[in-house]
Design a protein around this nucleic acid. Structure first.
Lengths: 265, 265
DNA sequence: GTTTCATAGTGGTCTGACCACATTATACAT
DNA sequence: ATGTATAATGTGGTCAGACCACTATGAAAC
């Protein structure tokens, strides 16, 4: 059965044939049955997190010790640890230990790129998604941002202007600005999604940032957005953000175009 | 407690640096240095995917064989496999094999719940995010949906009405409707994000669906949205979706409230 | 004080065996 | 011949123990 890349296949999933009748297994659900041992680890950590016994930044016990406590082999434990690390819940440092992630929440970016490659995400689709999310985000930020957020934004705008001749630093503060905006929206779910997208974007951007030449205009734009947010003018902020992102994308694609035509071998 | 620690830990690796040649490491030139062996696996798969040699639904070679080909141990290979499976790129079936994920693209939902628990995602935040995304989505679908999508939507609406007295089936078709809508938007990035959210939502919903009361109204609402999409009336579709989701959430929270007060578990 | 180096603690990898699950082939009974 | 039980096979999952590699710490040397 050849599976074409047609985007019409809408029936790939079927959940209907889950007949609850023919199960012959008693399968007492007293002690939760975990088919996968690694999931047992995940659930254990999840419980600790939900109970507040593990907070962002905390360190997990050593693998050998934890494995013994859970009565599983170290290999299985590591499988579970790997799962949590892959999804960004855990951060493992070789020779040091495993820690609960603490930074801004985000979903694994590696998987984002991979899934993107798998399903052929186009760059205009990425951009459209970012445009939608970020415009909503800045509107929410205008309505809900607290003073601390506004101060942090001001700081980043200043850094932006100060780094006009250091593209790499400029990019960092650019990213920070948008990140703070996401936090200021007061919706961590949206912020986490945005963070995932943002990281993917800036990773790509960092390859060509050295040749950017519209940074002054971009910095000015950030300042305007900042002022709109402080003025709690959601609609203005949204409009400005839309213009900013559009201009940014155009400049970027122009760069890419130029570099491709000039340095053709 | 630690009988193993009584044994002598044979330390023979310390003397290997007595090499008089140089104090610096030879720095063997691998094609590319992969600090983590598991990432080497990930990159290998990524290359195959990007080259089109692996498509959704394809089966990976057996672990033992693949490990030998990559010249790594099976344990390390499994670490990489686990990473890919955790992020939803791979789907591993015990006793069968590992397959490239094929269904609608989505990011690992387990991690979503975990990250949510970690950072305290509130249900209103989840809902707000869904509202924003789905309203944009339905507007895009109204503009871009192809005939196949509209036919599939019609099918699901019909199933919805046909399943008014079978809540579980109703829920399945409800989810399918929204999923098709996401595909009809023509933006797989948005669709993937939406899918992740949707799965989390319906997972929660399935616990209380048996006691739903407003299914007839919900079905009618789906039909109206469907008609708006077919009429390419983006604004109307957006407005209807907003009302639908708001009503749905209210009904759901009312259900939850009632169940909590009536039965004390 | 600074540098160097040995050590301990921890995650990362390897090996080989065995277990559990799913599919297929075979044997048997009907 | 057909259908069902049983065995064989292929595959992922788990285990055990050893060893490798990285990091941080503190003691010793300068």
């Amino acid at each position: 059965m050849r599976r074409a890349d047609n985007d019409v296949m809408l029936k790939t999933n079927q959940f209907k044939s889950m007949n609850p009748s023919t199960t012959k297994k008693p399968a007492e659900k007293r002690t939760q049955q975990d088919p996968q041992l690694s999931m047992q680890v995940v659930n254990h950590i999840r419980r600790l997190v939900e109970n507040g016994k593990l907070k962002p930044g905390d360190k997990l016990p050593p693998e050998r010790e934890l494995a013994q406590k859970l009565k599983i082999s170290r290999a299985s434990l590591r499988s579970g640890i790997g799962y949590l690390a892959a999804t960004g819940v855990l951060k493992v440092r070789h020779g040091v230990g495993a820690f609960i992630a603490d930074g801004p929440p985000a979903f694994a970016i590696t998987s984002f790129n991979l899934i993107g490659a798998l399903h052929g995400f186009q760059s205009w689709q990425m951009f459209e998604t970012r445009l939608i999310l970020e415009c909503q985000l800045v509107a929410l930020a205008a309505e809900r941002s607290k003073q601390e957020h506004q101060m942090a934004l001001a700081e980043e705008v200043a850094e932006l202007f100060a780094a006009l001749d250091r593209p790499t630093d400029f990019l960092v503060h650019d990213m920070n600005f948008h990140r703070i905006l996401a936090q200021a929206s007061g919706n961590p779910v949206l912020a986490a999604i945005m963070e995932t997208l943002t990281v993917a974007f800036y990773k790509e951007r960092s390859k060509t940032i050295e040749h950017a030449k519209d940074m002054r205009e971009a910095a000015a734009m950030h300042r305007l957005i900042f002022k709109a947010v402080c003025a709690r003018d959601a609609e203005k902020a949204r409009t400005l953000m839309e213009r900013h992102l559009s201009a940014s994308m155009e400049a970027q694609s122009a760069e890419k175009q130029k570099r491709r035509t000039s340095s053709s071998r």
